[in-house]
Simulated scan of single mutants.
Amino acid sequence: MNFTPLLLGNGGTIIDSGTTLTFIAKPAYREILKAFKRRIKLPNAAEATPDFDLCVNVSGVSRPPLPRMSFELTGDSVFSPPSRNYFVDTDDGVKCLAIQPVHSDGDFSVLGNLMQQGYLLEFDRDKSRLGFSRRGCAQP
């Protein structure tokens, strides 16, 4: 299991299994959105999906070529979830980026439950660290 210090205070990040989507501070969100738009070669969805800034048409594509994303964390840890953790089906043949901007300056970023799927997370509150592993709970 990789362990990394938790970020607390201004610009910190919380991990919330009760929040579905991931919310990122606006400056970082803008960079993520710009990078995805530059790298995705799929057509935009024909109709806009409310509350999502990036939606693509994946009709007829069995394995859509969606870019990979990684979070570089303090302590030289890298969290590299699969694209299904940050692209969500919103309609038949439509996938949308399941990351949105934090609405208020100074608010925490939130890694929601969709981003956490397939990971075992362990919190060390005494040392303010987070451990994560791709191993499922049922595996030894």
Rank of each mutant, 00 (worst) to 15 (best):
R84N: 12
D91R: 05
S83L: 07
G131I: 01
K34H: 08
P43H: 03
A35R: 06
T13H: 03
M1P: 05
K127G: 13
S59V: 04
K26P: 00
R39F: 04
R134Q: 11
S104P: 01
H103W: 07
T22Y: 06
A35W: 02
Q139H: 08
R135H: 11
F108I: 10
S80N: 08
S128Y: 11
G131M: 01
S77T: 12
K127Y: 10
G93A: 01
S17C: 09
E72L: 09
P140Q: 14
D124Q: 09
P81N: 06
A98I: 02
I24T: 02
T20L: 00
S104N: 05
E122S: 09
Y86D: 11
S70Q: 08
T4L: 14
M1S: 15
P50W: 13
G12C: 06
F132I: 10
D89Q: 14
D53P: 02
G9A: 13
G9M: 11
L54E: 09
G136N: 12
D51F: 08
C137W: 10
K41C: 10
I14C: 07
G106E: 08
G131K: 07
A46W: 15
K127D: 15
S59L: 06
P43K: 05
G75K: 04
M115C: 05
S109I: 12
N113Y: 01
C55V: 00
V94S: 01
T19M: 05
T74W: 05
S59Y: 01
L121I: 02
A35N: 01
S109Y: 10
S17A: 04
E31V: 14
D51K: 08
P64G: 15
L42T: 06
F87G: 00
R63K: 14
Y86F: 15
R63G: 05
R68N: 07
Y29Q: 03
G106M: 08
A45T: 02
P140D: 11
L114I: 14
R135F: 09
L7E: 08
D76E: 15
D126F: 10
L121E: 04
K26G: 02
N113H: 06
P64E: 13
E122N: 12
Y86V: 14
I24L: 01
